[in-house]
Simulated scan of single mutants.
Amino acid sequence: MTDNLIKICGLSTEETVQAALDAGADMIGLVFFPKSPRHVGLSEACKLADMARGKADIVALTVNMDLDGLSRINELVAPDWFQFHGSETPEACAAAKVMYKKKIMKAVAISEAADLEQAVFYSIVCDRILFDAKPPEDSDVPGGNGVSFDWTLLKGLDLAKPFMLSGGLNASNVAEAIALSGTTAIDASSGIEREKGVKDSELIRAFVATARSAQVVSGE
C-alpha cells in the first residue's frame, strides 16, 4: 500500500458517499454548479458532508461563484476545502482563503506544457493545484468531462504547493497515470460513473483500491 491521496468528486447520494468512505477515500467532493449533472443543493450537501465529517476531507467545488454563495456553503456545509474550478484569479483565491479560513484548491486546465505556467501564480496563494484536462469545445462545464491530457507533462514539476491529477481517470488507467505523471494525489469523477452524473459504488471501490496500490515510476 502507498500513501497516495485519493479524492472522489461529484458525489451526490448517501450510498456513494458511504462507498467512498468505506473504500478509504481521503477526500470527497461536492459540486455546487447547477450546469453540472453532479450538482447538489445545499440541504442535501449538508447531509452528505455530515456523513463524511471527521472521516474524509470535505471539498466544495464551485465555478466562479459569488461571495454570497460561497458564504452560504461555508456556513451551512462547513467544508474543509474550497475547490475553485472556474476563472477565479489568484487574488480571489487568496481573498477566499483569508475570508473563510479554509484550504483552497485551484483547478488549472491543461493541454500542453505552456498551460503549466499559470499554475505557478496560483501555487503561491493556494494550498493545492488540481490539474485537469481542458474541456471539449462543445462542453459547458469546466470539468468532469472524462477527458485526459498528457500525464508526462507533470513529471518532475516543481511547484510551491502540492498538486493533484484529474481528468478521465478510472480503475483501468489510474496506475499508469500515477506512474507517468509522478503524481501521488489523484481525483476521479466521470470515470467512476455508470452513467453521466451517477456514481457507481463498485467502480468507486475498484478505483480507490487500484489507486492506493499504484506506484510512481522513479529514475526517469
Rank of each mutant, 00 (worst) to 15 (best):
Q215G: 04
A56P: 14
G10H: 13
S71Y: 07
G54V: 05
A52Y: 12
E112Q: 14
V120M: 06
T13Y: 14
G191L: 02
G41L: 08
N145R: 10
T13D: 15
L130G: 05
V125D: 04
A214I: 03
D138C: 01
P135A: 05
L157S: 09
I104H: 12
A20K: 12
F121D: 15
D66H: 13
P142K: 07
A179W: 03
C46A: 13
I110D: 09
S12H: 06
G86L: 11
V174I: 07
I204N: 01
L203N: 00
I104Q: 04
E112G: 12
D68N: 15
E15D: 12
S201K: 13
V141F: 06
V63R: 07
A49K: 01
S71C: 13
V17E: 15
W151V: 02
S111Y: 01
L159D: 13
K199F: 00
D3P: 00
D132N: 08
S123G: 11
D132F: 09
V174C: 03
C9D: 09
D66F: 09
A95C: 01
T89I: 12
E193D: 03
P79T: 00
L169G: 00
E15M: 14
G182K: 03
G41T: 11
M99G: 02
M27Q: 05
E88S: 06
N170I: 00
A114I: 09
K55L: 08
D3Q: 11
D132G: 08
G168W: 01
K7I: 02
F207W: 04
A177G: 03
A20D: 02
Y100G: 07
E117Q: 14
D115I: 04
F32P: 07
C9N: 06
M51P: 01
V198K: 11
A113T: 11
A188R: 04
I124L: 06
M1Y: 10
A113K: 15
R194T: 11
A94Q: 14
M27E: 12
A60N: 02
E44T: 14
E193G: 04
S201I: 10
G219D: 11
T2P: 00
Q215M: 08
G41Q: 13
D140S: 06
K35P: 12
A56T: 05
G168S: 08
